[in-house]
Nucleic acid binder design. Structure first.
Length: 206
DNA sequence: ACATTAAGTGATT
DNA sequence: AATCACTTAATGT
């Protein structure tokens, strides 16, 4: 049994775990690597062992918009839907840091519905993602950019499990679909409010 | 020392 | 809040 499968041992019954363990394929992705792109057919679903994955939406012009992060023990709800309905991916998944994943071929999904814990897991994931999507929508519709930014930073912190975020203002701007200058100014403001500390390529949350 | 890339800033729309 | 034009600061070679 792979050591990092531990996160799932609580959640799944032994039989299911054994299946995952024998059928799944461990894959490692370096930070920045694209796991799932738009329009790609998903033929297996990833269970996240370690690291984190950023899920984004992109418009035809290449503008990106950050949706949410996946962390250890999570799975990609999009790939679940894709598998079930044989649709193509409508989102893009990028490894936020070096990430380890166990890929399970979609053929087994149906059969696994006999496991109560699997059903729970699938519906639970949908729920969580749905909540996060709602949050992303609110944040777009009702929050000002400075609040969105703070939210984003907190998200990053949680996903990385670290108070330091190693990103440039440019990258953040891209995720929030705005310009670097604006981010720099807002970050400066947050720094003056003692909420964060700014360094080159690094932001610390206080 | 120089070039490159990240970040800060005032002015304008 | 976006864009421009420019400055300043940090890093790599």
């Amino acid at each position: 049994m792979h050591k990092d499968l531990n996160q799932f041992t609580q959640r799944f019954e032994p039989d299911l775990l054994a299946e995952i363990n024998s059928l799944g394929q461990i894959k490692k992705f370096k930070a920045g690597k694209v796991l799932i792109d738009f329009g790609s057919n998903v033929k297996s679903i990833p269970l996240l062992l370690s690291g984190s994955i950023k899920i984004i939406r992109e418009d035809p012009n290449g503008n990106e918009l950050f949706l949410y992060f996946l962390g250890g023990g999570d799975t990609c709800a999009m790939s679940l839907t894709c598998c079930m309905s044989h649709k193509k991916s409508e989102i893009k998944a990028i490894a936020e840091e070096d990430t380890e994943v166990i890929m399970v071929p979609l053929e087994y999904m149906d059969g696994w519905m006999k496991y109560a814990t699997w059903r729970q897991f699938v519906f639970g994931s949908y729920n969580e993602r749905f909540e996060e999507m709602l949050q992303a929508v609110d944040s777009l519709a009702f929050m000002k950019l400075d609040e969105r930014l703070m939210n984003y930073l907190l998200d990053c912190k949680q996903s990385a499990g670290d108070f330091a975020i190693n990103k440039t203002h440019q990258q953040i701007a891209k995720d929030l679909n705005t310009s670097r200058v604006v981010i720099s100014r807002l970050l400066k403001k947050l720094e003056l409010e003692d909420k964060i500390e700014l360094h080159r390529n690094k932001i610390e949350i206080l």
